[in-house]
Design a protein around this nucleic acid. Structure first.
Ligand code: ZN
Ligand code: ZN
Ligand code: ZN
Ligand code: ZN
Lengths: 137, 137
DNA sequence: TATGCACCCTGTAGCAACTACAGGGTCAAG
DNA sequence: CTTGACCCTGTAGTTGCTACAGGGTGCATA
């Protein structure tokens, strides 16, 4: 499989595939006589794993650890669980933070009654946290 | 006010203040005889505006537009309202996306029963989106 | 007077995770 | 024999900072 086919098969940008190789996330594939990369099915499924994990928000380093683990099928899977659980917790924290942000932004946006910038409550609220009702950080 | 005082007064890293000046978000202040930056109260409140807006998740470019607007107090404030509303919508979308992620991650994490990596349902789920119950993207 | 220390300066490079060229080579079809 | 689709390497850009390196300044103390 050439890089273009792998790109279409996994929905991954070609530049991204080369980037993953450069940072050691995907192993370097064989080359054809013309120096084209030639991928196997193992590459395809590894890349699918990476892309899917990225879509689920895991960082490259987390994915690296997860790949290490699945490369060594006899190891205890507790590490994978720990990574996934920690990531879930981070997502939950991020949601809470964004919800606070949303509430504060809703209050701020709702205060604009139109008119000139000098009188705008939105601009006023952005300039001074004392107008806020939550710490939002 | 020297840069260290401004830094303490606004809770902004000194490097960040210089960065804002470099990208034209803060006007270059006067200099002392020793070439030290010397800030006025106008600088201080402008920087507070920037930091507060950043805390609320606005991008630098959005803040630039908001500052342009507040620099011209006679202008109609509708543009500010539009920026803030658009930002609020983005925050809401991000929350929804993260909520989908959280649900999917919760399902995935819940499937691990311990054991070896070869049998791990978490690793399996990460490798193949067909195990997912939502599109989560 | 020297010297220590806190503070300031510029310029550059690093982070994450890509993305986008520039400037070239390869290969099959018409 | 040229056109077009593909592939290659290497480098630089994105966002919003942060962290030096390598210097200068200013004030208090011994
Ligand atoms: Zn308004
Ligand atoms: Zn606030
Ligand atoms: Zn498991
Ligand atoms: Zn999925």
């Amino acid at each position: 499989m050439k890089i273009g086919e792998l790109s279409r098969a996994t929905g991954t940008n070609i530049e991204t595939i080369r980037y993953y190789e450069r940072i050691g996330l995907l192993p370097a594939p064989d080359r054809t006589a013309a120096n084209y990369r030639s991928y196997s099915d193992a590459h395809r499924s590894r890349l699918s794993f990476v892309r899917h994990s990225r879509e689920l928000g895991f960082t490259i380093e987390e994915i690296r650890s997860l790949l290490d683990l699945s490369d060594d099928p006899a190891r205890d899977c507790a590490a994978a669980d720990r990574i996934a659980t920690a990531h879930l917790e981070q997502v939950e924290q991020k949601i809470e933070q964004l919800a606070r942000l949303r509430d504060e932004l809703t209050r701020i946006v709702g205060r604009c009654r139109g008119g000139i910038a000098a009188d705008c409550r939105v601009i006023e609220a952005l300039g001074d946290h004392r107008h806020c009702e939550s710490p939002h950080v």
